[in-house]
């Protein structure tokens, strides 16, 4: 494992911790999209099925379990926690997730490495992760005001993906025959989804202002 990959994973982990701390400390999930969080849960469940049949490293296993547990913890807070669930913007978070799930699944059936259940589900999770942030970005666009923690959460999620891109470039030059077209293309799409957000985030940071999205 190279430093870019590790930095990417740590940024991903940190983004989740920031979101959980925000929810716990403020007892509020205002501005957070439950749809996006549920999509991430689907992504992790379908991707980490290999926990049952392959072992890569202790690091790998532990991280997978942490991602799964934290995803379900966040969903639990937003759906079941007495105080937190009342702060959820249900009326604003109306993205039709089937418009993401169905095309990703069809694409996974058509473009994959191997026509097996686990491999198709793994490929589906790669495609779905690329677009899973969209309900969150749409919610942000609707509610306009972006609180600091939600902004940092999304910024870190985007940074994690950008670091993975650097990791793939590094691996391409250091590992003989390393090629991952499905992962590379999806990862590039996923990073591009954040570009607009990055622009406004950096602008707010440079001007020392609270982040606002244009109407």
């Amino acid at each position: 494992m190279n430093i870019f990959r590790l930095a990417g994973d740590m940024t991903h982990l940190l983004s989740i911790i920031v979101l959980l701390l925000k929810i716990q400390a403020t007892k509020s999930c205002a501005g957070v999209s439950l749809k996006t969080q549920e999509l991430y849960a689907v992504v992790f469940v379908t991707r980490y099925l290999d926990l049952f049949y392959s072992f890569i490293s202790l690091y790998n296993t532990v991280m997978k379990i942490i991602f799964l547990l934290t995803a379900f913890t966040i969903i639990w807070y937003m759906r079941k926690h007495k105080v937190v669930c009342q702060t959820y913007d249900k009326e604003q978070d109306t993205f039709r997730v089937l418009f993401l799930i169905v095309p990703c699944f069809v694409l996974a059936l058509l473009v994959n490495h191997e026509m097996s259940v686990t491999e198709v589900l793994w490929t589906f999770s790669i495609y779905l992760e690329a677009v899973a942030i969209l309900p969150q970005l749409v919610l942000l666009q609707r509610t306009k005001n972006v609180d600091n923690l939600t902004g940092n959460y999304i910024f870190m999620l985007g940074s994690y993906r950008a670091l993975y891109l650097v990791n793939w470039v590094y691996r391409y030059f250091t590992e003989l025959g390393y090629r991952q077209w499905i992962v590379w293309v999806s990862g590039t799409v996923q990073t591009c989804v954040y570009l607009d957000f990055f622009y406004y985030y950096v602008q707010a940071w440079r001007n020392n202002e609270r982040m606002k999205l244009p109407g």
Partner: peptide
């Protein structure tokens, strides 16, 4: 071969 290599990432 390619498939298993991809699974070492998270």
């Amino acid at each position: 071969e390619e498939a298993s290599a991809a699974h070492d990432e998270l």
